[in-house]
Amino acid sequence: MKAIQITSTGGPEVLEYRTISDPIPKRDEVLIQVHTSGVNFIDVYFRDGHYKAPLPLVLGGEGSGYIAALGTDVSGFEVGDPVAWFGPLGSYAQQAVVPADKIVRVPSGMDMETAAALMVQGATAYCLSHLTYPLKRGDTALIHAAAGGVGFLLTQMAKLCGARVFATVSTEEKAELARRAGADEIIIYTQTNFDEEIIRRTDGRRVDVVYDGVGRATFEQSLKSLKPRGLLALYGAASGPVPPFELGRLAQMGSLYITRPITKDYVPTREDLTTIMDAVFKMYLAKKLEVLIDHRTRSRTPRKPTESSRVANPLGSWCYLSGLKMERRRTRTHTRNEIREAADALKLLVVATSLSSYVDGAAA
C-alpha cells in the first residue's frame, strides 16, 4: 500500500511517500480502508520528535473508513461497517490497523469526513467542557483560540452547558467565527492584555475556568484571569511549553488549580470512548454543533469494501485540515494546487493517500 512514512524526525522534508507492506490485523484489531485522514497539530509533535514513537513511523492519529478485515476475537463489527477512530497512529495511508476498542461506528446520517473531523477535536472539547471542568449554568469560562478547531467546538459546547464564554482571538476575522460559535465576549488579544480585559468585563470577579491550548504565550495572563479556586486547564502548548513554575504561586494567586489533561486518559475503555463520541455525534446530528473543516484534498472516490473486494485495488482517501490558520475562504473546497499555494509558508505535510502530492501546511 501507499503511505506517508518517516524514518527520522525533523521538518516536513522527512515525510516520504512510499510503498510499504499491507498491514494485517492481529487479535482484537481491525483493518480499515481509509476514507478520510485527519491532520492535527499533534502530528507535528511526532514528526519533529517532540513526542517519541518508534521509527519508521506512519503519522496520522485520526481518521474514518470502512472495515476491510477483522482480527481474531473481534465482535460487534462486520466487514463494510463505517467507523472512525483517534489515538493509534497510521492514518496517513491507504489502510490502517486499529485496535477494535479504539473505533466507533459512524452513525447513519453522518458523512465520513465530519465523523473523522469530530474525533480528536470533538472528544477534546467534550472532555474539557464536561469532565475536566464540568460547566454548568452560571459558570464563566475563558477559551483561547476560539476560532481554531478545538476552540470553535469548545465554545459551542460551553454555551450548550449554559456558561458565559469569553473568547480570545487574534484578528477581527476570527472574532466573527467566535461569535458564530456563540461566544458572549470577544477579546482580540493582539490589541490588548486579555487578563486586564477579563478583570474589567467581569467587574473584577474574573472567571471560573480557563481553557488554554496555547501554553507559554498565554500562561501568566491565564492565571491572572482566574477567580480564587479557579482552574486552568492547560490542554496544549501551541506557542511552546510552559517554563518551570513555582507551585507556591498558586496559593498566592488565590488557591488556584492547574491541570494538564490529555484526551486519551479520559477514554481508557471502549465504553468510555463510545459514551463520549455518541454524545458528540448526537450534538452534531441535532444541529447543535458546527464543525470547521477548512481545506480538503481528494485523491479519488473511495469505495465501501465488501467481503470479496476488501483487499483489492488501493482506495482513495480524503485528507482534511481542521482549524487551519489560512486566509482563503472557509466555505469552498480547494484543489490540491490551491492548498499548496495557501499553505506554502506553513510546516506540516498533507497528503492525498493515493497520490504522491505533497502539501506543506500546519494545523492549529
Rank of each mutant, 00 (worst) to 15 (best):
T301K: 14
Q191T: 13
R216D: 14
E185V: 15
P314D: 11
Y266A: 10
A343M: 14
T114M: 04
G60Q: 10
P268G: 12
R205D: 12
V311H: 11
D294Y: 01
R206C: 12
V104M: 07
Y284R: 11
T72L: 02
A53D: 00
S225K: 05
K287E: 15
R332C: 10
R180Q: 15
Q252H: 05
R200I: 04
A147V: 07
A116V: 07
S91W: 01
V207M: 10
R164T: 15
M326V: 13
T263I: 14
Q156C: 06
V97W: 01
E197H: 03
S64D: 03
G60L: 03
V120Y: 06
R296K: 15
V74D: 03
D73C: 06
A69F: 02
R205H: 09
A146H: 09
F77S: 02
Y17W: 11
E78W: 00
L160P: 02
R179D: 11
S222F: 01
A233Y: 01
G80F: 02
S21D: 14
M1L: 05
L160F: 03
L89M: 12
G10Q: 10
D101S: 09
L89D: 05
V165N: 04
K288S: 08
E62M: 06
L57W: 10
V267H: 08
K2A: 01
I186N: 08
Y358G: 03
T353D: 13
R200N: 15
A125W: 04
D101I: 06
G236T: 06
V207E: 07
G63A: 09
D212A: 06
L346D: 12
F41G: 04
M157A: 02
H50Y: 14
V165E: 06
G316C: 08
A343L: 12
A217P: 06
L256Q: 04
L160I: 12
A147F: 04
K304H: 01
A175S: 15
S354H: 11
M119K: 04
S222N: 10
E290P: 00
G213S: 12
L285C: 05
S170G: 15
S357K: 09
K224E: 14
R205E: 15
F152D: 00
E220I: 02
